[in-house]
């Protein structure tokens, strides 16, 4: 009999006080408690974090990188969304 698959989890770590959790990688574990412990052992052996989130990989819906052109096109052409698009004379100072 083939070995049954163990669910995959995505791991997010808050590295420093005040920062958001950031994706660091994934791991296999049977349940959430074991995933959290495994994440500690795999990803924070050198004090990399203050807090860990684990999320079932199946819960993630992702955009297709192959379609990134179409996906992000609406933002590409809009240079007027950037502050440097607007002329403010140097004498006025930082704005």
């Amino acid at each position: 009999m083939a070995t049954p698959n163990t669910p995959l989890w995505e791991v997010f770590i808050r590295s420093r006080n005040g920062l958001a959790h950031k994706h660091v990688g994934s791991l296999h574990a049977s349940d959430a408690t074991m995933a959290l412990q495994a994440a500690r052992d795999i990803y924070t052996r050198r004090g990399e974090g203050l807090s860990i989130w684990v999320v079932p990989s199946t819960a993630i819906t992702a955009s297709d990188p192959a379609e990134k052109g179409m996906m992000f096109e609406p933002a590409e052409s809009k240079i007027y969304r950037h502050p440097t698009f607007y002329e403010v004379p140097e004498e006025v100072g930082h704005m």
Binding site: P83, Y86, M95
Partner: peptide, 10 residues
């Protein structure tokens, strides 16, 4: 927000 203020001043 920085763009907002600059576009207003412009």
């Amino acid at each position: 927000e920085s763009f907002h203020q600059r576009q207003g001043y412009e």
